[in-house]
Structure formats: structure tokens, C-alpha cells
Design a protein around this nucleic acid. Structure first.
Lengths: 329, 329
DNA sequence: AAACGGTGTGGTATCGATACCACAAATTGT
DNA sequence: ACAATTTGTGGTATCGATACCACACCGTTT
């Protein structure tokens, strides 16, 4: 690959002129421009991204931090981001934390020294040190899925979605409803969804047995186990189970089917997430669609907006959700 | 962030000495080293990746080209790669092609000008122009999932896996077996799996009605539709369906259940891919586990190997697969 | 005719690091 | 004691681009 210097020599102009042609900046005579373009075409020259980045401090790369890329949620998020970012000429540099807190910090640092133009961060645990780090970051950032003050956020409306879903169960006549959650350190998925559930039950004056509240992690099997425990420890069996993710719901349904409970006739099940499989289950799972790809797009757009205006915006976007009332209730 | 020059001044040494400390190369007195390290610690200095890359031509970034990041297959692949690459100090720059051929070429070019240290390419269509481009690339590359001569490959054993799976169906007494494939331009998934199926049927002297052979794309719904067509156009109904991916198999099962065919009693179903959900379906899907994460790891390891020896290896790794004989047959 | 503003071009400094060489000082060998 | 290493350090060139300024050349304006 030739350098700009060689192109300049070949076209009998200075490097400056070649640069002007490349960036379409400043004055260049038609004649000079043509000569340069000709040489560029002949040689297939492409300017060195490294050199350009060093000089201009712009890399056209966006760092994306996600807990994992294996789950449908994350991969859809990233797909959505990538769609918008690619359109705007950016590429995605991926960083996966595997839920480890030190790694979140580490990657924020790493991406900064890599001089990415911006960061999109799908956080899980939001603790003070992390927030502090984010706030003193010199790069535009957008946080998705967890609320952090002072930075642009794209948020799911976990609270209201969970409320609506609980209300749906109640309105269909369920009075005994079990709950499968996750660790409450995850404020959005763990804390807010549970809070909404409990509040709605209280408002409807419905009792929640302690055995009805179980906790899983993020995989299908833990939904299975949680359901097993729930049924074992209940004085009275619940008639419905609210699982905070589709995978947990799928695990629950699997356990129920295998133990000859009919869904939804004996026990109804709902999830959150609208995973691809959810509508192909029998019965089709009632769930909430957060439209993760859309969320990724929004986050990317919000970031690009910041990059363009060059001053930190602190907008919050609360995403819409759709209740998918299907056959499992 | 200070520069190496400032660190040098602060530690009363030259930039060269700081560089030597940073890279642990050449001779540096203990005393000088200590002073430099002290200043680095105090300032929190981190060398500019851009400048380093410009000088050394190494970016510590690996470009990964995949058709999409939304599917379980791809996301697992990438997760596997990321695991190994992160361990070796590389980061992943993502490029998704959405199956568009021009984009595959475009990204190969783009990644090259970005001076990534290596490329991992999960190709789909392998046509001459692409192969040519790959062969004249100046960067180490590893291709995964499709066989291309002259470059290191990580391959699934599509042919034998499909044969084994067909054999399994035959050995369980099935004589009328339907097939749901994908476009044969995809040599691995479309062509090889079909070839293996047809050969095994022929070898067992089993007839394959034309209506029994259907084609879908890569989503669940197309498996549903293909099954619908298959049953509509069959003179005699098949007793088993071989779908070349799990998603197609899931679509098939969904259609069958909804139309009151029992799986596997009336019609058995098998897939390929061992998607997470496959074991949680009722009945649990018989499928082939390609261990995509493992595949991603292998590809990453193969690439790193090339980077280390600095000469192009042309090794081929054919991955092992596991037949998961579950309840859908 | 002098002054002026718009065009077009080249030269030089710079971004922040490493490579490489020159050279001084310390150590070793004979 | 002197040459030959080994060790330690700094200076300069370079990677490949852009930023910015200086200047030359025009045609207008006063």
C-alpha cells in the first residue's frame, strides 16, 4: 500500500494537496484534483487509519461493553447498535465482561486508551465506583438498561412493564401468583421488576406466600429449579408464575409440563423479553417485548447525536414496550 | 493524559528510556526504571495506542466477520473467539455482513486498512472473487465453517454429521424421511448436509418423494411453512423429518403439534446445531452439537498461532460433533 | 497604481510512540 | 594497563497522516 507521500509524488503535487482532495477541504484546482484521483484509483491507495487517528484523535470506532454476547438479549442489542453505527461509518469494538465488576472498570479504561470515539455500555451492577468512573470519563458514553445520573440513558420501563404484566394475571382472575426473580443487585431486572410485582399484589390485596418467591440466575435450568422449589414449599399452589425473563419462564414451563401440570389451565406462566422462541412454544408464551434491537438502535443514535453536537447531552430515553398476550395465561 | 515526553521529563530521562521501561526491552538501570515507574504510577499514564500502532504496525485488534450477530450460532461463535482473544490481549472488532456478498469483500478491505492484526471470517457463500480476495490478503486470516484452500480453516463435519443423523433415523425404522434444507449456495449447510442425506437414503434403498424435500431460510417460521408444504404435497406422509438446522426443526415441530401430529410417534423430527432451547422442548429435540463456542475458540487459537509463528500456516481443523439422541425420534 | 480579497499550492510542525545508532561508562579479559 | 565487551542513555529519524501558515497568483476595487 502506497503512502500519501508517494501519491503526492506520482500526481506531482504536495502531500497537502492530496490531503485536501481526500478530505474535500480547502481549495484544490480541478486539474490537480483529477490527477490525484486518477493516481488514487490506479494504485488503490487507502489512507492509513492509524496515522489519521493519531493526528485527528478520531478513530471511527465505538466501544460496546456488554455482560456477554451469548444471550439473545445482548446479541440483539448489539445487532441494533451495529446497524446504526455501521450506517454512520463507525465500527464496533466489542468488550464482554462476564458480569465481573472489575472488568467493567477495566474495559472502560481500556476503551478510553484505545481512543474509541464513544462507548455504549450495557451495565448490570451499578455501584458507586463504577458511576464515578463513568462520570470522569473523557469520552461520550451512553448507558443502556440501568439508570445512571449525569449520562445519557436508554432505559427499559421495567417497573411499568412488570406492573402491567402482574395486572394482566390479576385481571384474568389469578389470586395466587408465584414469582421467579434474579439477584436484586441488578437494579433493573432484579429489583424493579420485583418491586412492581409486589406492589401490584399488595394493591390488589393479594397475599404472597414466602415459598412463592424464588430466585434464579439467567439460564433456563434455574427457572426449572426455582419452579420445583416453589411448588415444593407452597402451602397452597400458585395458579400463575411470573418469571422475570423468558428463559426462566421456559424453565418453569418445562418443569410444569414434565410434572403433568397443564399450562395455562393448572398454572399460567409469563415471562419478559419476547425471545424468538417464545411465540413458538406450546403454549405460546405471554411476555413483554422490549424490542432489544430497537433499544440498541436508540442507544447508538443517542451516542451519535452526542458525537455530532460535541457537548455532553444528558438525555434519557425510556423505551416503549409491548405486552404480548398469548396463550400461556 | 500525559505523553511519553512528559513522563521522560518528569523522570529526568529520555523518551527512549521510558520506552524501554514500557516495553521491557534493552538495558535500563534499576534506578532509572524505578523513577520512571514511579512517575507512571503517579500520573496514571497509559501509552497512546494510536501512536504505538502507527510505529509498530500492530494493533492488538482482530477483525471478526460474521453474517449476523443475532443468531445463536454466530453469537456463540463470537463468544468463543472473544474468550481466547481477550486472554491473549486482543480485542474484537465486529463486522456483520447480513449475508450480502459485497459486504464480505468490503469488510475484508476495511479491516485491512484498519490494520487489524488478523481476521476471523465466518463465511457463507464462497465464490471465486471472494476466494481471490482472501488469498491476496496481507493479513493472517482464519476461515470458519466453509472450506477454502490455501488458508487455515476450522470446519464442521457437515457431511458426516448429516450422514450419522440420517443413519439414526433409518436405524430406528424410518423409511419415509422428509428433508428441510436451505439454499445450496451455502456449501456447508445447504449443499453438504443435503448430499449426505440423499446418499444415505440411496444407500439404504429408500425412496425420497419430491414433495418430501423442501427448502427454508434460516428462521423458525420457514420451518413451519416447509413442513406445511411437505405434508400437503406428499403422496404418502413421511414418518420423520430431517431439518438442517434446529430452528427449522422447531418450526416443523410447531406445525406438527398444532395440527395434532404427535412427535415422535406420528412424525419424528431432528435438527442440527444443539441450540440452547433444543433440550428444553417437549419432546427434547434430537440434534447434532457442533459446540459453536468451542469452534470459535479453535478458530481464535488457530489465528493466534499464525500471529506468533509469523508465517502462514494452512492447517485445517475438522471439529468433532456429538449426536444428541433425545426424545424427538 | 496600490491595496485587497479570493484561490490554489507547498512547506513545516505535529500527533505520540518505537527503531536504531552513537557514544559514554562500567566491567571484563588477557 | 589496555583492549574488548557489556551496560546504560540520549539523539534523531520515522511511522503516515492533518493543521496551519506563508506565499504566489489572479481579478476587483478605490
Amino acid at each position: 500500500m502506497p503512502t500519501i507521500k508517494e501519491i503526492a509524488t506520482m500526481a506531482s503535487v504536495s502531500r497537502s494537496t492530496v490531503s485536501r482532495v481526500l478530505n474535500d477541504s480547502g481549495y484544490v484546482s480541478d486539474e490537480a484534483r483529477k490527477r490525484v484521483e486518477q493516481v488514487i484509483k490506479e494504485t488503490g491507495y487507502m489512507p492509513s487509519v492509524q496515522a489519521k487517528a493519531l493526528r485527528t484523535k478520531k478513530t471511527k470506532v465505538i466501544g460496546v461493553i456488554v455482560p456477554t454476547i451469548r444471550t439473545e438479549t445482548s446479541s440483539r442489542l448489539v445487532a441494533g447498535m451495529d446497524y446504526i453505527l455501521a450506517e454512520a461509518g463507525y465500527q464496533v469494538l466489542l468488550a464482554t465482561t462476564n458480569q465481573e465488576r472489575e472488568k467493567e472498570l477495566e474495559f472502560l479504561q481500556l476503551l478510553q486508551t484505545r481512543q474509541v470515539d464513544g462507548i455504549i455500555f450495557a451495565a448490570t451492577n451499578v455501584e458507586p465506583t463504577l458511576i464515578e468512573k463513568i462520570n470522569c470519563l473523557s469520552i461520550p458514553i451512553t448507558v443502556i438498561g440501568q439508570e445512571i445520573d449525569g449520562v445519557p440513558n436508554v432505559l427499559y420501563d421495567d417497573y411499568h412493564a412488570a406492573k402491567d404484566l402482574t395486572q394482566l394475571l390479576i385481571s384474568k382472575g389469578h389470586k395466587r401468583i408465584g414469582f421467579i426473580g434474579v439477584n436484586e443487585k441488578d437494579r433493573a431486572v432484579g429489583y424493579l421488576r420485583k418491586k412492581a410485582f409486589l406492589e401490584m399484589m399488595k394493591r390488589a390485596s393479594l397475599n404472597v406466600e414466602t415459598g412463592w418467591v424464588q430466585e434464579g440466575i439467567f439460564d433456563i435450568h434455574s427457572g426449572y429449579v426455582a419452579t420445583e422449589k416453589m411448588l415444593a414449599y407452597s402451602k397452597q399452589l400458585p395458579t400463575a408464575i411470573f418469571a422475570v425473563t423468558d428463559r426462566l419462564a421456559i424453565g418453569a414451563m418445562q418443569f410444569l409440563k414434565q410434572h403433568n401440570y397443564r399450562v395455562p389451565d393448572d398454572i399460567a406462566v409469563v415471562g419478559i423479553g419476547a425471545s424468538e422462541i417464545s411465540e413458538h412454544l406450546t403454549p405460546a408464551l405471554t411476555t413483554v417485548d422490549y424490542q432489544y434491537e430497537q433499544a440498541g438502535r436508540q442507544a447508538a443514535m443517542l451516542l451519535i447525536q452526542q458525537l455530532n453536537v460535541k457537548e455532553s447531552v444528558t438525555k434519557k430515553i425510556v423505551l416503549d414496550y409491548r405486552l404480548l398476550d398469548r396463550d400461556s395465561v
